[in-house]
Design a protein around this nucleic acid. Structure first.
Lengths: 177, 177
DNA sequence: CTCTTAGTTCTGTTTAGACAGAATAGACTG
DNA sequence: CAGTCTATTCTGTCTAAACAGAACTAAGAG
């Protein structure tokens, strides 16, 4: 699989670009795109060759993807090499990513905000305005975190229905007027 | 305002770190944090001094924040300098950010995927498997984009209610079983 | 028990992005 | 219409991250 369909190539390049905007290494995103498109799990050396990157880089990128929980090692009979496969279910994949982002971004932020507010209680630590701002932010992040935690527990079809909620359904639950 | 409350400092530093994880420049995020905490709009030179960054950098960062739509120029009577103020409403702020991210990330991705699939129709452009993968992804992004567009139109209290939707409410709309 | 194959980690280099300071442009003031 | 104040843009420097290739480790295979 050293040569790619031009379409695959186009997608892999775009995915790499998008990765950088999400604070994800371009190469990591490309490896992911390749695995996502691939019908079969791929060994690391083949990935390196196909994308034209160093074998060592591939190793690092694959590890990163495993940390995100969206790529798994697979073993192929009669082949000593590790093979790598991306999750197939797109919803599950983004759920995994969101899970990690919550852990890495929302949770620490909630923690810092709580710390700040705890200290802010002390006499000359902060004025009322700053306390107010931080409290607003904390409420937002707590709400977002909780909402996501609930969302994460829903099975894919339920998320689909939720995403498609229209005005009528919102009115039913008394959300829209 | 050359000296900051220690708590403000702590928050600004954390916000800067978080920024980098979101593909946002650390300095840009710090400037935003400072403005978010500030009671009054601040002029650029004061921002530069408080954060210990070059005036030129401040200018660039402020422009970036204006592009995101979360910082606005404000004029103060009797002062020729531009002053800058962050949005106050946390929900509106994240709505603005989400709006931009959709425009910069979701929309172009949908576009590329449609392109790919259009080309994939041609004879030897791609195999059925790749077409399937790309179609899955496209459906996901279209759904996510649409869902967000609807979410964006809701006023803050409605979003609050939606975020707090519990199991019972989900069952009411027939989403959970 | 040596040789090969696979995978990871280490090290030095490269590169893109962030940044400071200088140069520039523009707008107001006396 | 000088002189000052403000903001932006330009240019060179610096730094952190990305990366390739080498060195190393581990695990079969003969």
């Amino acid at each position: 699989m050293a040569t790619l369909f031009p379409i695959a190539q186009k997608f892999i390049l775009h995915w790499g670009e998008m990765g950088t905007r999400w604070g994800i290494n371009r190469t990591v995103a490309q490896v992911h795109a390749l695995l996502f498109l691939s019908e079969k799990p791929l060994p690391a050396d083949e990935i390196a060759e196909t994308l034209g990157i160093a074998r060592s880089n591939t190793s690092t990128s694959l590890r990163e993807l495993q940390n995100w929980g969206i790529v798994k090692i697979v073993h192929v009979l009669g082949d000593r090499r590790d093979h790598f496969a991306s999750m197939k279910d797109v919803f599950a994949m983004f759920r995994a990513i969101a899970h990690q982002r919550k852990k890495r971004e929302i949770d620490p932020t909630v923690h810092v905000l709580r710390d700040c507010l705890a200290e802010a209680g002390k006499p000359k630590a902060a004025d009322a305005h700053i306390r107010g701002r931080l409290t607003d932010l904390l409420e937002f992040f707590e709400l977002a975190g909780d909402a996501y935690a609930r969302l994460e527990k829903l099975p894919t079809p339920a998320v689909l229905k939720l995403a498609r909620l229209g005005d009528r359904a919102l009115r039913m639950v008394g959300i829209s007027k």
